[in-house]
Design a protein around this nucleic acid. Structure first.
Lengths: 297, 297
DNA sequence: CCAATAGATAGTTTTTTTCTATGCGTTACA
DNA sequence: TGTAACGCATAGAAAAAAACTATCTATTGG
């Protein structure tokens, strides 16, 4: 109401007449006459002076035009911002993940598709990651295994085989792959309890029945690498996480039954969020691109 | 539409919630929900993030709020300007007048009543003044005599007696007043043809039948004063225009039939203009205040 | 677990906005 | 000096929008 009147005034004032404004802004001239008239009546102010058959801006009108010019510039800015938001040219997506190795690929794909979106990644264990998700501290979580929780929407993203790695001089070092059974009695350095990789590995071992000798439990991938390099034992790692080293050799597991999984998890509630939808879309596309390369669970 | 949505968004964003905004801005909560929802749908942007039972500003929402804050500040400014215009606290009034002497009084009264209104005075002869009026170059004209023109609204403002003035050593200098008949053969310096004062004076002379000796015609009041001081003759002037001098003496005319008039003239078309109405009102009041003092025609 | 709270949804009514058709006064031009 | 074109005003009707009430759902705090 006030707005419409101001807008009509602005149109007439900047177009230089009622008919001109009507033509320029695709509204009828009587509408403009009515709106401007209402504005003038409401405030008892002469915005236009009748001069023959035309109406020209009065001093008050000129002053008001200066204000409305700024006003509608701000409106344009608001709409421009909304437009660019529509196209996801701005915004931020925060991700909590259990490990950096699963997410970098997704981040790269997403960033390529939406270069304007800021990305924030926070790492933590699975409990922390889930808490972030439920506390709205992140938009997307990347987890290894999933709780069945109907507040969550879970998308299996990909699986990474777990492999054994040994020092160059170990008897496995010349092998391309081994069987789990061969690990019987083998001195082994393992991850902390709760590690996704350890869990997957031990489940597979339990199936096989093989029992390595647990040398030590270390809560850091890097520290385990050092321990292996120093000959304290052999260990395992998700293939994607393995950092090559001249003293180390990665040996696959023949059965290939040991995998860590990456699931993309979001709150069902937020599934319809544009930015989250965009991310999930990228994830699906990446999964499909992986098909046939055996990356899928 | 866009505006209402932005306003609803702004209300919710600045009030910190839908219900809070509904209470603060006296609109119903469903209205706000609908408007904000429409804005989000239209641009596919999440302005608020659902967090439990509340909705909190998203990054995009925060950005938009910054813009809408400026937007509505401009709107407030526009409305404030219109409000103060309603009370005639701003604006400008331009006056064209045939002489400065008639208008100063009005200007003073008007300025006292509406100190915020800028005043512009332009002087000219009666033709120029009327042209300004018809060309909308001025809002109000002050003229001596009037054409009957039904495009014009004319208000008699006041009349000023015309008096004779002479040098101290003139035989009239000891008199308080003279009769027009005494001017027979008297050397006289007169204004240019077209001068209101000359016209009034000569009309009165014609009635009387007296014939002064026209010494010279000078198109400037100041130059005439100098001429009288130098003893070239006597002259006349509207009493209101007379500037006292130790060498000059003003002598009234007994019949007091010689007057110049001041009429306030506006275009009928523009009579309803607030500022013009306000000025005419001041003029009427000043006229009434003059009643009983004999200032009226 | 219940009551209170924040927000969403459905359906309706009121208000606003906008249109078409037409009238009136000005201006320009033949 | 008519007369056509132009610029705006007015009337009445139609369309769109904004607003409401009532009700529902989900979350949270005691």
């Amino acid at each position: 109401m006030r707005y419409t009147r101001l807008r009509s005034f602005h149109a007439v004032a900047s177009a230089g007449g009622f008919n001109a404004a009507a033509a320029a802004f695709n509204i009828s001239q009587p509408t403009l006459t009515a709106q401007v008239g209402a504005l003038e009546d409401e405030y008892g102010v002469e915005l236009f002076v009748r001069r023959g058959r035309r109406r020209e801006l009065s001093d008050a009108g000129r002053h008001l035009l200066a204000i409305t010019t700024r006003l509608f510039a701000e409106e344009d800015e608001a709409l421009a911002f909304l437009e660019q938001s529509r196209e996801l040219k701005t915004g931020r997506l925060s991700i909590s993940a259990v490990g950096p190795f699963h997410v970098t690929e997704m981040l790269a794909a997403f960033n390529q598709a939406y270069p304007g979106i800021g990305l924030a990644v926070k790492l933590g264990n699975s409990t922390e990651v889930l808490d972030d998700l439920f506390d709205y501290k992140c938009d997307v979580a990347v987890l290894a295994y999933i709780d069945e929780d109907d507040r969550l929407l879970t998308i299996p993203y990909r699986r990474h085989p777990v492999a054994v790695f040994v020092r160059r001089d170990h008897r496995f070092a010349t092998r391309d792959s081994i069987r789990l059974a061969e690990l019987e009695g083998e001195p082994m350095i393992v991850r902390e309890r709760g590690s996704t990789t350890r869990r997957a590995f031990e489940e597979a071992l339990a199936v096989t029945g093989a029992k390595p000798r647990l040398m030590m439990e270390i809560g850091s991938r890097e520290a385990i690498r050092e321990a292996v390099i120093h000959g304290l034992g052999i260990s395992y790692v998700s293939e994607a996480e393995f950092v090559p080293d001249q003293d180390l050799k990665l040996v696959r597991i023949e059965e290939a039954e040991v995998y860590t999984y990456a699931h993309v998890v979001v709150l069902k509630q937020r599934e319809s969020s544009r930015i989250i939808k965009a991310f999930l879309d990228i994830v699906h596309r990446a999964r499909n691109a992986l098909d046939g390369r055996g990356g899928k669970p």
